[in-house]
Design a binder for these strands. Structure first.
Lengths: 150, 150
DNA sequence: CTATGTAGTCAAGTGGCTTGACTAAGTATG
DNA sequence: CATACTTAGTCAAGCCACTTGACTACATAG
């Protein structure tokens, strides 16, 4: 196996490990802040709904699941008070799913939890290399090599 | 929200996106190489079994599932010819799960697929920053801020 | 030798997801 | 406008990876 391949393997493992740490850490932080009836999958939904809401179909595509699954997820979140369905402004077939105040509070909690996870990384690497890390990953993403869902 | 928090959010999204790209890309590459009866979860199992095999319990802990689930996964992989159970050298209760030749071939395919995913990153960033990226992630991991499962 | 702990499997139940079928509303064609 | 087609969403049923609970076989401490 070539050196480049070995490097690729190491990098893969590290990226996957970092992602794992993030998902677990964010979830733990969200739970610790009182939102204990949510799972990581809900966070990925919130990320799509956060700015201006989304339709069930858009959410489904973002999550990589069927519309039916997304619809069920929305129904669950409605029941728990995190989101609500509104009539779509332009398309009477569609319904706009938006965060409630509770949902917004949860996304703020998730943001804070993410910061908690990343903070030790910042302390370890320093601000300069941290920026470089972010910029390099952004460069990769900008070239379309990352899925647009996140 | 502070600047550091914004940076943390961006970084989180980028890392998660990169991980997503890796998982999808590796899986696609493995399927394309003829191992089309496997799912990403099997790859995570192979990663633990690859060097010297592991017990069902060890595999379960690595994957973050129950022993029963791991046992079922092993049973499935046995049926497909990727792994086999051997008597454990020291503990008659335990059984050592090891890769078959087919299983090893699959891990090599996964390695190659990972390299395929990472290669465009290397081309985009250059060797120097690529090394820096890996080293920084390794530094973070070395401090125990990443889950040891990967 | 006995009691407790550990490795693994069997059995049954669960929950998130899928496919399939359907209604309501938009859109394009004549 | 009238018909055919597409799209947004839900309802219903089934699937499958995972869970909890119960159990056997072996190990280990007292």
């Amino acid at each position: 196996m070539s050196t480049a391949d070995t490097q690729a393997l190491e990098l893969s493992a590290l990226v996957l490990g970092a992602a794992n740490t993030l998902v677990d850490g964010i979830h733990s932080g969200v739970v610790a802040r009182g939102f204990d009836d949510l799972r990581p999958a809900h966070g990925f939904a919130f990320a799509r709904l956060a700015p201006d809401g989304a339709t069930v179909g858009e959410l489904a595509e973002h999550l990589g699941v069927t519309k039916q699954a997304a619809s069920q997820l929305v129904e669950e979140l409605v029941g728990k008070g995190y989101v609500e369905r509104q009539p779509h402004p332009f398309d009477a077939r569609a319904r706009l799913v938006v965060l409630t105040e509770q949902g917004s509070a949860c996304t703020r909690a998730a943001d804070a939890a993410a910061a908690d996870v990343v903070r030790p990384w910042l302390n370890q690497l320093g601000a300069k290399r941290m920026r470089a890390l972010r910029d390099d990953l952004a460069k990769i993403a900008a070239r379309g090599h990352l899925r647009p869902t996140w």
